[in-house]
Amino acid sequence: MKKVKEIFRMGLWEDNPVFGQILGICSALAVTNLMLNSLIMGLGLIFVTALSSFTISLIRSFTPKHIRMMVQVLIISAYVIIVDIFLKAYYPDMSKALGPYVGLIITNCIIMGRAEAFAQKNTPFISLIDGVASGLGYTMVLLMISFVRELLGFGTLFGYTIFSENFTPWTIMVMPPAAFFLLAMIIWGANIFLNKKEKRKEVSKA
């Protein structure tokens, strides 16, 4: 139980895949213009990371070391295709809005990173939890960026109007550069916090 807590703290905050490890940036920039897109993308990533970590951990002792990357990519891509088929069949609008980015989940470094760094060495259940935690960390950052972008760019949140019609949308927020600014600010802010904490730790040790 203590370990689970620790994993969540690392995945969501200290070792957050986006602002801690700077992974998964490409898709974080691409799908964050609307909160709903970000949420679905995040859920897709949580699903893929958790299940691929679980599977890879499950078969880790049978996998020959020198072909493990091949096996990992195969497993990850299978889960990505499952997400893609599922969205196409039951959420066609979402599938259209996310377009090629669903398929590109496979190139998201977070999944491969967790597989190599964690699932390879830990038991299946803990790996599953770790996948969920990392996916949540990613989703959280995506939602933070899209919150600002959708609110200022469209005046809505999850499609519901927040600002009245007199509100002038900030066109720049809808465009790709806005994601760069916002992501940089989040990384900056998070690093200031994390550094302060570390310094305090060092001081108390001394």
Binding site: F62, P64, I67, I82, I85
Partner: peptide, 22 residues
């Protein structure tokens, strides 16, 4: 032979799963 058999087996399992879903 082991890696080849292992890889083929994994591929077969996932291909079957995806084909079924599709």
């Amino acid at each position: 032979a082991y890696p080849i058999i292992f890889m083929s087996l994994i591929t077969a399992i996932y291909t079957f799963l995806l084909a079924f879903l599709d």
